[in-house]
Design a protein around this nucleic acid. Structure first.
Lengths: 333, 333
DNA sequence: CTGTTAGCGCCTTCAA
DNA sequence: TTGAAGGCGCTAACAG
């Protein structure tokens, strides 16, 4: 690997001059600049990022903590964020908290060792106090999808309540009045907010909230499966369902597909989230689509802005983006 | 941030001693070691990775290039690899070639700038000459899932031919003789090898290869959809199908679900790959499951071994792992 | 066992 | 406009 010294030697100038050329400092004569550029080319020189980092005292690295790397939604998000970070000279290091608070803490300390300058995190719990010392240190932290209750961090989320409302409202408009809510865990913010939307839609339509039409068996796929099983085994089960996210929807759909055709045909569902294969999800007529790209771009830019001091420090912003209700018309079978 | 100097000062020793403690060099008196440790704790000192990198001349970073971050298989793979790398003190930087050779080249140069010491790549094309100069530089490169024809890199793959054979053989054993192959792109190694397995199974059973039972419309989901549409519109279509991967399977399944129930009930399928939601894939009875964890662990360890000179340089190894045929019994509908 | 010293590659005063 | 020199934090000789 060629170093700045090699270039200087080859171009017959000092390393300071090379450095100036590299950093677009225009107090360099045109002649020398050209010579430097040609030496750089000739030697295939590239700035050594770690040396620069050391000298400048900035790592140009940010950390991203998501709950699960096998989740399309989060990976999509990461892909968009990474692009923005990279374009701005930052490297994004991806970590998975593996759906646990302990994992989150662990990844956090790992990232701190890597000297990240900022953090994007999809919070696991509601308590974010383990991030407090880091925020006090001045590191920008942006929460995505969910937020911590007691941390003055920026947050980018969607309007979950409204999204839930729209989906359930659509079912009601289609004439359904016995609508089940398949959630996972009310302590999880997204789940709870979407539930609120469900309630509002029912209330607005004058449909009483039936407690036994609400089922929670955890946010994983099998949770959806079991909740659905439980629901359908009731004497007089709902004929429409709202699934709190895609995982739940997948599990529930699996159960649905195990039912007799007559039962299947009676059911109609709506689900939060949307994916390229959602057209596969039998009996799901509506999907609440999140603006993944917008969320990702916004999250990354928020970190970047803080880093560049473009944002006043201390004023934590919470942004709620709108969802879009998508209707899928499954061809008649 | 506390530096090694601060610690030395606080503990009343030289920075060299601190460094020795840090690096488990045992030529340090117990008393000083203890003092150093307590200062480290007190000051919340952490080694500055970039300074160390600079000094040691090694970045402790490896690059991973996958075609697509939204693909469960690749992300799973990454998750396993990342864990191994991390345990060995390496940071894995993830990049997506976005399913194109140009993307691969671009990511490669990005990673080289980051001074990665090794590379894991899921090759996009068959030509890997853009990696040659890097290999000559002594960087270990490990191909995963696919391989380059003209690069002396290690490769970790599954036995695609055998996998394809097993799946088709299973269909034959179930009594089917009109079996379609839904591929995507014969120039892609995995597709071609799986096709070979398909051919062998047919041949072994004395079933003639019908050219019009083989369809290729690209490796994406919609490719599966269109191929399937084409197949089923034939006068006398196959009654069983082998899908070359999960994306194709998803697309094909979508088309299947749009068919009348009688048509659906007549079909049985087998597919390469396997995922947590594969039980959702209607009419798919067999899945060829790849040992994702094993592949990931092996790939990471291969890079690591080369890095530690445990492997003789130059002797590129190709490893073929076995797949497992999984049978899913969809409950009767 | 321990400290001093030099230097990894880079950027930035400071002087000229 | 330019170069010399110092130092970012760390480790590895080299002395003692």
């Amino acid at each position: 690997m060629a170093t700045i010294k090699d270039v200087a030697l080859d171009a017959g100038v000092s390393t300071a001059t090379v450095s100036r050329v590299l950093n677009k400092d225009f107090r360099v004569s045109e002649a020398k600049r050209r010579r430097v550029y040609s030496s750089i080319e000739k030697l295939d020189y590239r700035i050594h990022p770690f040396a620069r980092t050391l000298r400048l005292g900035q790592s140009k690295t940010v950390g991203v903590i998501i709950p699960d790397m096998s989740n399309f939604f989060f990976m999509n998000l990461f892909e968009y964020m990474e692009e923005i970070f990279r374009k701005n000279g930052y490297t994004a290091v991806l970590c998975s908290s593996r759906n646990s608070v302990e994992g989150e803490v662990e990844q956090l300390s790992y990232l701190m060792e890597k000297q990240v300058e900022g953090l994007v995190v999809v919070p696991m719990g509601t308590d974010g106090t383990h991030f407090s010392p880091i925020m006090e240190q001045g590191l920008p932290i942006v929460c995505v999808d969910r937020t911590f209750t007691d941390l003055p961090a920026d947050s980018i989320m969607v309007d979950n309540e409204e999204g839930g409302y729209k989906a359930v409202r659509a079912l009601i408009d289609d004439g359904y009045r016995r609508i089940g809510f398949v959630g996972g865990d009310m302590t999880q913010m997204t789940c709870y907010e979407r539930y609120l939307g469900y309630c509002r839609a029912l209330q607005e339509a004058g449909i009483p909230l039936e407690e036994e039409f609400v089922s929670m068996s955890g946010m994983a796929m099998h949770g959806g499966y079991y909740s659905m099983k439980e629901m359908l085994s009731k004497e007089n089960p709902p004929d429409a369902f709202f699934f709190v996210n895609l995982m739940i929807c997948l599990g529930a759909t699996q159960l649905i597909m195990e039912q007799p055709k007559e039962v299947q045909d009676r059911l109609v569902c709506a689900s939060f989230d949307d994916a390229f294969f959602s057209s596969l999800l039998h009996r799901c007529r509506y999907f609440v689509s999140q603006p993944v790209e917008e969320i990702g771009v916004l999250a990354a830019n928020t970190v970047l802005n803080r880093l560049n001091r473009k944002e006043a420090a201390g004023a934590a912003k919470t942004i709620r983006l709108n969802t879009e209700l998508i209707q899928i018309t499954h061809k008649e079978v």
